[in-house]
Each structure stands twice: as C-alpha cells, then as structure tokens.
Simulated scan of single mutants.
Amino acid sequence: MVARNQTSASEFLLLGFSQDSVPQPLLFGLYLSMDLVTVLGNLLIILAISCDSHLHTPMYFFFSNLSFADISFFSTMVPKMLMNIQTQSKSISYAGCITQMYFFMVFGGMDTFLLTGMGYDRLVAICHPLHYPVIMNPQLCGLLVLMSWFISLSYSLTQSLLILQLSFCINWVIPLFYCELAKALRLACPDTLVNHVLLYIVTSLLGVIPFSGILFSYTLITSSILRIPSTNGKYNAFSIGASHLSVVSLFYGTGLGEYLSSDASSWRGMIASVMYTVVTPMLNPIVYTLLNRDIRRALQTVLGRTIYVQ
C-alpha cells in the first residue's frame, strides 16, 4: 500500500488472510463454526459449574471466570473478522481499532492471571491438602479475581490513553485480522519509546513471571506426587492438575508462537495468530471436558436436564 502523508488515521486496514490465496467463503464458514463451538462450549462450562454444587470450589471458580474471559477475548476479534469477510471489506475504524486493542489486552491479561491462580490452587490442593480449605477460602479467591480485573483494566486503559496521543502517518495497514498493539505502534509517526517500554515491562510481568510461577508450582507438585507411595494415589493426584497443565501449555505455547513469529504477514505468522486468539479459547473447554471427570459428569447432568425438559 502507498504511504500516506496524513498525520491522523480515520481507519485501519486489517489484511488477515486476504493477501493469501484462501477462499473467503471457506474462511467464513470455518470461523463461524469455531465461533459457535467457542461460545457454546464455554457457556456450557459456566452453566455446569453454576448448577453442580460439587463444583463450587476455588478451582472451578477460577475456571468459570476463565471461560467468561475466553468468550470475551474471542468476541473482541472474530465477529469483526466475520463481518469483514462477509462484506469483503478490510477496514476497521480508528475508534474500533483502539477499542479492540483495549479489550484484547484486558481479557488476555485476565487469562494470564486466572491460569496463575489455578496453578496456585493446584499447588495447595496437592502439596497441602489438609490446609486447603483454610488457605483457598472464598475471600482470597474473590480478592485474587478482583485484583486481576483491576490490574488488567488499569494497564489496558493506560496503554490505550497513550495510543490516543499518537498520530499515524506512515500507512494504516495491520497485517493481521485484528488490531494488535505492537503492530499498531509500528505505524505511528512520533516516538513510541514510552509505549514500547511499557509494553515490554507488562509483557514480562504478565507473561514471564506468571509462567515461571506456574512452572515452579508444577515442579513442587511433581516432587510431591513422586513421594506418594501408591500408584493409584499418584494417578489421582496427577489427574487433578492434568487439565490445567494442558490449558496452560496451549495458552503459552500458542502465545509464544505468535510473538516469536518473525513475519506476521506470512502464512506461518497468521497461523500462529489464529492459534493464539481463536483456537485456544475454543479448545480450553474441550480439554477440560476430556481430562476432567467432574466436568464431564456435570455436563452430562446439565444436558440431561435440558433434554428432559424439552
């Protein structure tokens, strides 16, 4: 695209897969199907946890919040993408792009915090089972979630206000299907040092530190499991954290793949982006359903009631 001389942008162009030889109707049908699976799957998880009193525990409290964050994270990008594919348009308004970036950061941060909280919950449950009800009390769980919301909202608001001070005069093309902060900063005319410093600091705080904490937790958990004498006891202890560890691996693995991708406009970069933003929220409820016996039982109960009522 030819560079423009204007000092402010009224809209951005989201290239997505439009630069590749991919049939747009095929993309629309694929993303629409994934949209339905993601929303319905996570809503069923929330419903199952709400209806089953056996799941009113800290672990599933965090997981229901994670399902809500996944629905919201997914919904900040995919509906606009589906609209652009349907209308054969690539544009998003300046206000719409800033709004999309804001909520992308909010719910992406919430995913990180909630997965970390779930890791701490598993650590206490396996390594200190007798003290679990005292340590993971409802007040602490509620406080952790409120703090997660506060930090995510505060950072996203700060970064969005800083972006609003920038002007965009190089070009207005973002080589993704959604507005991503780092890609948008590359299009700005003024010095974006403050924005980049804040971005790198928060990426470390919300990415590296929580992930390191989760790894440390599972190091202690593994050490504790290996000390269990019976094979059945080891299996039961491992099954408690298997679903969470799978979701953590999926979230951080796809996120790392996206941010390490050298060229976002390449096919590999686009696949990494889709995996992180679209596939991960869709697979989370599937992974938990397959690996977690309690969730399966609760879902069977909820679906059984629905069929009976109909």
Rank of each mutant, 00 (worst) to 15 (best):
V2H: 10
A3V: 09
N5R: 13
S10P: 00
L13E: 11
S18V: 11
S18P: 02
F28C: 03
G29H: 08
Y31R: 03
Y31L: 13
G41N: 04
L44N: 07
I45T: 10
I46M: 15
D52L: 05
H56Y: 10
P58M: 04
F61R: 07
V78T: 08
Q86P: 02
K90M: 11
S91N: 12
I98Y: 05
T99I: 03
Q100E: 10
Y102A: 06
T112N: 12
G117I: 00
R122G: 00
H131I: 07
P138M: 07
P138I: 12
L146E: 14
L146H: 10
W149T: 02
S154A: 14
F168C: 10
V173T: 12
I174G: 01
L176C: 04
Y178V: 04
E180V: 06
E180N: 12
L181W: 10
N195M: 04
H196C: 08
L199H: 09
L199A: 10
L205N: 05
G213S: 11
T219W: 12
I221K: 02
N232S: 15
H244A: 01
L245G: 01
L245Q: 04
S246P: 00
G255P: 02
G257V: 01
A264D: 09
V278I: 13
V279H: 07
T280C: 11
L283T: 04
D294T: 10
Q300S: 13
G304L: 13
Q310V: 09
